[in-house]
Simulated scan of single mutants.
Amino acid sequence: MMTTEAASAATTHGPLVLAVDDDPAIRRFLRTGLEMHGFRVVEAETARQAKELAVMRQPDLVVLDLGLPDADGATVVEALRGWSHAPIIVLSVRKSEAEKVKLLEGGADDYIVKPFGMAELLARARVVLRRAVRQDTPEPVIRVGGLSVDLARRLVSRDGSAIILSPKQFALLRILAVHHGSVMTHRQLMRELWPQEPDEDVQYLRILMKKLRNRIEPNPARPIYAVTELAIGYRLRTQEQLDAVGYAQVMR
């Protein structure tokens, strides 16, 4: 268990989170849970306060509710993406897939539907923070379960055995690996894979993903590495996310 002194030191030097929600109970929940795990927290209850604090405090991470009293939280995402690269995790009771896609393509890094647990938020926060740190210098090797993706040498293996991929299959895997842990929307992937024809039929992406899964997944019919975010896109799981769903369970 973390001592009082250790907890104090962690919250003095840990990543700074801007928690934006008009509900005081939610803000207390966020502050308590995040500070217990070494984060520092500043709070805002309106879109205006969020924008001001983002400029003044330069947070490492923004946890943002959409239902703010003075503006939709999406306007905060848009404003911050005009100048800040800080990861943004959106919180909302709204479950519209179209809205999730719009927010992710507008600059949000992840999306959690209320109600949610602190363990889920912490796992998502660690993923987007690691991604932010490695943006300029991507990890040369991404490992999750038995899958290994060497980005520098363009080598892929599973359980120690080499996997041969076509250039387009590797391109798809590379995008997911660089952003592993975070969802990539269909449109984001299409724009990366077919920059000259970004509005190509998404069915081509689905076919490409099926071929990739046939290569990298132990059971392509039940993927555990490159998983589908229904009606949104795909995500390459991190080891932490794989552990969370139970590696033994998903291998059955």
Rank of each mutant, 00 (worst) to 15 (best):
E139A: 14
R143N: 06
R143H: 04
R143D: 09
L147G: 04
L147D: 03
S148F: 00
S148L: 05
S148G: 01
S148T: 13
D150A: 10
D150Q: 05
A152D: 13
L155I: 08
L155P: 00
L155F: 01
L155A: 08
S157M: 02
R158W: 03
R158Q: 00
D159E: 11
D159P: 00
G160T: 03
G160F: 00
S161Q: 12
A162H: 05
A162L: 08
A162R: 14
I164V: 12
L165M: 03
P167S: 00
P167V: 06
K168H: 10
Q169S: 04
A171E: 14
A171R: 14
L172K: 05
L172A: 09
L173E: 07
R174I: 04
I175E: 15
A177D: 04
A177Y: 07
V178W: 08
H179S: 13
H179N: 15
H180M: 01
H180F: 06
S182H: 09
S182K: 13
S182N: 07
M184V: 04
M184D: 08
T185M: 12
T185G: 09
T185Q: 13
H186W: 12
H186L: 13
H186F: 15
R187S: 14
Q188W: 07
Q188H: 08
Q188Y: 05
L189V: 12
L189Q: 08
M190G: 02
M190E: 13
M190A: 09
R191H: 07
L193P: 03
W194A: 01
W194P: 02
P195E: 02
P195L: 08
P195Y: 11
E197P: 00
P198I: 04
P198L: 03
P198W: 11
D199M: 07
D199R: 11
D199A: 05
D199N: 12
E200R: 15
E200V: 15
D201H: 14
D201R: 14
D201Q: 09
V202P: 14
Q203M: 09
Q203N: 09
Q203P: 00
Y204G: 00
Y204N: 08
Y204E: 11
L205V: 07
R206N: 06
R206H: 14
L208Q: 06
M209E: 12
M209A: 11
K210A: 12
K210Y: 07
K210W: 06
K211P: 00
L212G: 00
N214E: 15
R215A: 15
I216A: 01
P218Q: 05
N219R: 12
N219F: 07
N219L: 10
N219T: 11
P220V: 10
P220N: 11
A221Q: 15
A221W: 10
R222E: 14
I224A: 08
I224Y: 01
Y225T: 05
V227K: 05
V227F: 06
T228C: 04
T228R: 11
E229W: 10
E229D: 11
L230K: 10
